[in-house]
Nucleic acid binder design. Structure first.
Length: 113
DNA sequence: GCCATGGCTAGTA
DNA sequence: GCCATGGCTAGTA
């Protein structure tokens, strides 16, 4: 496994439960800005035995990227809901569940914001 | 050639 | 929804 690969898997593993991140955001966090598609491809070939919260990765729009009606699509929605993420027809509101949504929460709690 | 992306636009309600 | 992109792979020569 090359370095880029390890960093991307590490970035995915670091998404906290109940939160989601876009392919692009993962790439950026892995130090590979612009490599969103690489993230998607690597998710399709996760090594056996590696446990990864793959379902916390979504499109930049907040939509589940897998084709609707596919087994994976349903599974992803199910896993997300299971940890409290709101999924309304294949889509998650990033403003509330995105990685930096907590920044918003902090700001809201601050006097003057 | 393919695609587990992303960004932007037209066109509706 | 559509199109531009980038990166990787299968399949041919």
């Amino acid at each position: 496994m090359n370095e880029a690969q390890e960093r991307i898997y590490a970035a995915i593993a670091a998404i906290p439960p109940g939160r989601v991140a876009s392919y692009g955001a993962i790439a950026a966090r892995a130090g590979l800005p612009g490599r969103a598609r690489l993230v998607g491809r690597l998710l399709g070939e996760v090594p056996d035995g590696m446990t990864l919260p793959w379902f916390r990765v979504l499109r930049a729009s907040g939509e589940v990227a897998l084709p609707r009606g596919s087994k994976g699509f349903r599974e992803q929605c199910r896993l997300l809901k299971a940890e409290g993420v709101e999924v309304k027809n294949g889509r998650v509101p990033l403003s509330r569940f995105g990685l930096d949504a907590d920044v918003d929460r902090v700001l809201w709690g601050m006097p003057g914001f």
